[in-house]
Amino acid sequence: MMTNLFSVFDPSTTIFNLSLNWLSTFIGLIIIPYYFWFLPSRINTLWNNILITLHKEFKTLLGPNGQNGSSFIFISLFSLILFNNFLGLFPYIFTSTSHLTLTLTLALPLWISFMIYGWLNNTQHMFTHLVPQGTPSILMPFMVCIETISNVIRPGTLAVRLTANMIAGHLLLTLMGNTGNSLSSILLIFLLVSQLALLMLEFAVSIIQSYVFAVLSTLYSSEVN
């Protein structure tokens, strides 16, 4: 039971020792409709409006000291995560964002680059972040330890948050789907309605989690300037 349940998150399906499940990260390029590339189109207009809105918001979060063009890094990050979250909702497509292999690969290099840039260029500013303003002298050593730990675990919390949210919804969908064979016709209708409602919730979670990942990454980068 547990093996079948968690097999939807199994990345070990191989052909000729090639892990084909991870190709789901790129397989969506095949299903993008061709008319997306014809201008103007409604899909292109909608997506451009989303990107412009995100660009304005990320520029505000980065502040006046942010590097020009740095917001596009986080827009690309948002697009990649949203793309893979949506793909994972289709049947028989591997959800790559449900694994720490992908989410930690996205979060850790970003955090390391922020830390290297901050400590090399704004060393004094980084030290002041370790002690919040107004902290009593006797609590300063403890605050330095707490702030250091909270800073170190940031990439882990980013990765685990995204992974846990993707796994939770998919497991619930799988558990509910496995009970369909033993239900009566009336209960099966309620099951289908609840599955559809849960699927809509998963669509919302896919958008929210990609947005949260990008916004938190932007906030972490703004702290090193």
Rank of each mutant, 00 (worst) to 15 (best):
M1W: 13
M2E: 12
T3A: 10
S7G: 03
V8F: 11
V8I: 14
P11C: 01
S12G: 09
T13F: 15
T14P: 06
T14W: 08
I15V: 11
S24P: 07
S24G: 07
F26Q: 11
I27V: 04
L29E: 08
L29I: 11
I30H: 10
I32P: 01
P33R: 12
F36Y: 15
F38H: 08
F38N: 02
S41V: 07
R42E: 00
R42V: 11
T45W: 11
I50C: 06
L51D: 00
L51G: 00
I52H: 09
K56L: 08
E57W: 12
L61R: 06
L62Q: 06
N65E: 15
G66T: 02
G66A: 06
Q67H: 08
N68G: 06
S76A: 14
L77Q: 07
I81L: 10
L82V: 03
F83Y: 13
F86W: 13
L87G: 01
F90I: 15
P91R: 11
H99F: 07
H99W: 09
T101S: 13
T101F: 14
L102F: 09
A107N: 01
I112T: 14
W119F: 15
H125F: 08
M126S: 07
M126G: 04
V131E: 04
P132M: 04
G134E: 06
G134V: 06
T135V: 09
P136R: 02
S137T: 15
I138S: 09
I138G: 00
P141K: 01
F142T: 08
T148L: 14
I149H: 06
S150D: 07
S150F: 15
R154I: 12
G156W: 12
A159I: 03
T163E: 12
I167M: 11
I167W: 04
A168I: 08
A168H: 13
H170M: 15
H170N: 14
M176V: 00
M176P: 03
M176R: 15
N181T: 11
S182V: 13
S184G: 15
L187A: 03
F190T: 02
L192D: 07
L196N: 10
L198G: 02
E202V: 04
A204Q: 10
S206M: 04
I207S: 01
I208A: 02
Q209C: 07
Q209G: 00
V212W: 08
L216C: 00
Y220H: 10
Y220L: 11
S221R: 14
S222K: 08
